[in-house]
């Protein structure tokens, strides 16, 4: 391979990496405002983040809202996904379109809609209001991931269970659900992250009572660039790294020879194709911003 394109590629990789890692030293900086390299290091702003209610409360709010969104999304999406994937019926294309549509909406457009509509319903500035809005936004991702998993499901497993005497309900409970568990888990995780990261709608509808972390960060950056923001950034970045690296590490552990043999040697694990790192990453297509 030619050297020049290779070099260019490495430079772009550096361009992607640099801003991600710069927030880490910033979080330990003693500087009260943006300054790099930091004049000194301490843990003061970590202490500030964990003790200041103006930061802890939005964090708690975000967690509540993200869990609520995840639960509501899965509750609604699961039966709908089975309907769309397993059945051929009139209106299926329309249903498909409707379930993926929120993905194509610029969030600012929906933000205005929710601002006035949820305002009319007296749901702005409440946890429930944000959960509802975030659920609508999370539906497409959860649906796409779950339906991809469901399409790959071998229905002969269910047929086998039923031929062995399991009722449809027991078949679902003992066969379908356990086999699809990873799909459910990833789908739910995406719904969670979708909500936890969502900024624009939250800026407009999460008020004092339900202010989310992204909204607090946005305000904080806009107002005075509170140094605590670098702590939050580092923690969020660390969380992402943890979630992404965990499966990689897990795979590496599983690849140990003795385990490998016990599992009949998984050839798939061997050529750890890059896309395996995060099979669903490209599905996070959202016009959020």
């Amino acid at each position: 391979m030619k050297l020049l394109p290779k070099l260019l590629g490495v430079l772009v990789a550096a361009f992607i990496a640099a801003p991600l890692f710069i927030v880490v030293p910033m979080s330990f900086s003693t500087a009260p405002s943006l300054e790099f390299p930091p004049p000194g290091y301490w843990l003061g702003y970590y202490a500030a983040y964990f003790t200041d209610e103006r930061w802890t409360q939005p964090t708690i709010n975000s967690l509540i809202i993200a869990f609520g969104t995840m639960a509501l999304t899965m509750l609604l999406v699961t039966p709908a996904t089975f309907a769309v994937v397993r059945h051929r019926f009139f209106g299926r294309g329309l249903a498909n379109l409707m379930l993926t549509m929120p993905m194509a909406m610029p969030h600012i457009v929906l933000a205005i809609g929710y601002y006035s509509y949820l305002g009319d319903l007296r749901l702005t500035q409440t946890h429930l209001g944000v959960i509802i809005a975030h659920t609508a936004l999370s539906v497409p991702v959860a649906f796409l991931i779950l339906s991809a998993n469901l399409k790959g499901f071998d229905r002969n497993l269910e047929r086998a269970a039923m031929s062995l005497g399991a009722t449809p309900l027991r078949t679902f409970w003992h066969v379908t659900l356990p086999v699809l568990r990873p799909g459910f888990a990833i789908s739910a995780l995406f719904a969670f992250i979708q909500s936890f990261d969502e900024t624009v709608v939250a800026i407009f509808i999460s008020g004092r009572e339900s202010e989310t972390l992204p909204r607090k960060m946005f305000e904080s950056i806009r107002m005075q660039a509170d140094p605590v923001i670098s702590v939050v950034s580092t923690l969020l970045f660390a969380a992402v790294a943890l979630v992404i690296l965990a499966p990689v590490v897990w795979k590496a552990v599983r690849k140990r020879p003795n385990r490998d043999c016990a599992r009949g040697g998984t050839p798939a694990a061997k050529d750890a194709a890059p896309q395996d790192v995060n099979p669903c990453a490209p599905s996070r297509v959202q016009l959020e911003a």
Partner: peptide, 20 residues
């Protein structure tokens, strides 16, 4: 891994990084 990590890191975090 790097691309995925950047992808999943909040827009706000990355925006803030550029401010720095």
């Amino acid at each position: 891994l790097l691309v995925t990590m950047s992808f999943w890191t909040s827009f706000l975090v990355r925006t803030y990084a550029w401010m720095v």
